[in-house]
Nucleic acid binder design. Structure first.
Lengths: 242, 242
DNA sequence: CGCCCTGTTGACCGCTCTCAAGCGGCGTGG
DNA sequence: CCACGCCGCTTGAGAGCGGTCAACAGGGCG
């Protein structure tokens, strides 16, 4: 986390996507206990093995949690959107690398302060608890998908989830903050398969791709059926892609 | 959760595998706030969709968290051992089914009481927090494995993890509480592939299988290399197979 | 203008899935 | 006590999906 700390507290109040936890945080200790830091795309927030000194709350932008293995295999565990907490790890060292996907801002809460605050502030404690259990339940869906679905189902699920994240109701088009390699590593596929599958969905008329980063959903009904093929429950409100 | 509640508080003190959280729980409210329930193999603790009235602490035996899809695909998200908490979900309904793998016992904590207790008992709050963040970090390894490894690597990883769970130090042989189908659904493979891969490890001389449920590790060095192929960090102490 | 980076497309291969048969242990009932 | 059937597991043959390797296209930027 060798990045200049640039306090930008006003960003907290400017960002429109803030959630309850973000509200709680910013209203309670924007100046004192949290440090606000901004990142350029690709910049690292924490690296694997770094000491677990801070927990992070995403304020603006998209971040990713990455694990890269010795032999180069890469798995993205989650994408974090504003309101999501990340870096909550039990050990003294981070097991995941957290990086900015797009330009973004986080609030860094000292681990100690965060734990202490949880004990004296019931609302904060509940928010953190909710956040982390929600991360777990997202991991369940993610795992089911990676473990048991075809490439087409995975990509449909991914797009469907992104479209559902748009504020308010489901969006007809999605802006992809991440590049193909990130999608591949999130879905447990190769970049070629992701690309081919995009083409396949396009040929079938389910989506259109005006640019590589923009996906228009032409047949939400069919996309949903594909996306839900490996899931029996209705899509629950998801705060992050993860 | 239509199972007769059979209080067996003595089991809590008899079980040798209890952990800090279990200790905390049992020492603090074994009689008042927690209900102790035992299950036969295969019995359901909670079903998917059941209201999230209780959180559970495994006291004895092995449990599994399962998700079965509409079209029959099945994914096991975690195996829970004594000291692990499960059923911690953010929504009002469970997203996972929790079942006993072997005969086992859980302490059921009312969700309300658990949340309330977290607020007034720092030690308990820390234990729960540790437990759940640990579950998240296990999910990371699990996902990396399911998303990026060969069948052989997955099974080696699974056996390696089980052997590392033995109390004290790494065990030379492992008793499998679960059957092949559970292993397959945990690793994102088919039962045939699991079976073939066991045979393959056997032929290579890495393991021996005196019975189908017992695995003797003959070449821990080679097994570890396979298991660690997709991981760069040393195996961290894992409380559960999950 | 040319390089680089990201994404797409193609050909081929191999791992795992699918479908199917066979095997062994165990419990039950004759 | 043995025969039978059930269940969990193993083994085999074949097919398909996605991975691998490689070439190419397009856009941004120096």
């Amino acid at each position: 986390m060798n990045v200049a700390v640039r306090p930008r507290v006003q960003a907290l109040h400017a960002a429109g996507e803030l959630l309850n936890l973000a509200d709680v945080t910013t209203s309670c200790f924007p100046y004192s206990e949290a440090v606000i830091v901004s990142y350029a795309p690709g910049q690292e927030v924490v690296g694997e093995g770094d000491p677990t000194d801070n927990y992070f709350l995403v304020v603006r932008g998209v971040f990713r949690a990455v694990k890269v293995t010795r032999d180069g295999r890469r798995q993205i565990f989650a994408f974090y959107m504003p309101g999501d907490m990340c870096g909550l790890e039990p050990d003294d060292a981070h097991g995941l690398t957290i990086e900015a996907v797009s330009a973004g801002t986080v609030a860094a809460l000292s681990r100690q302060a965060c734990r202490a605050r949880m004990l004296r502030d019931p609302q904060f404690n509940n928010s953190v608890f909710d956040n982390i259990t929600r991360a777990l339940s997202r991991a369940v869906d993610h795992m089911t998908m990676v473990g048991r679905s075809s490439a087409e189902e995975r990509l449909a699920w991914f797009l469907w989830m992104l479209s559902g994240r748009a504020r308010g109701r489901r969006a007809a088009s999605v802006e992809l903050a991440m590049q193909r390699q990130d999608i591949a590593d999130y879905l447990g596929l190769t970049i070629e398969t992701v690309s081919r599958t995009f083409t396949h969905l396009k040929v079938q008329g389910l989506v259109a791709l005006p640019t590589t980063r923009r996906v228009e959903i032409l047949r939400p009904d069919l996309l949903e059926r594909l996306a839900a093929a490996d899931r029996d429950a209705p899509i629950r409100a998801a705060r992050a892609v993860g």
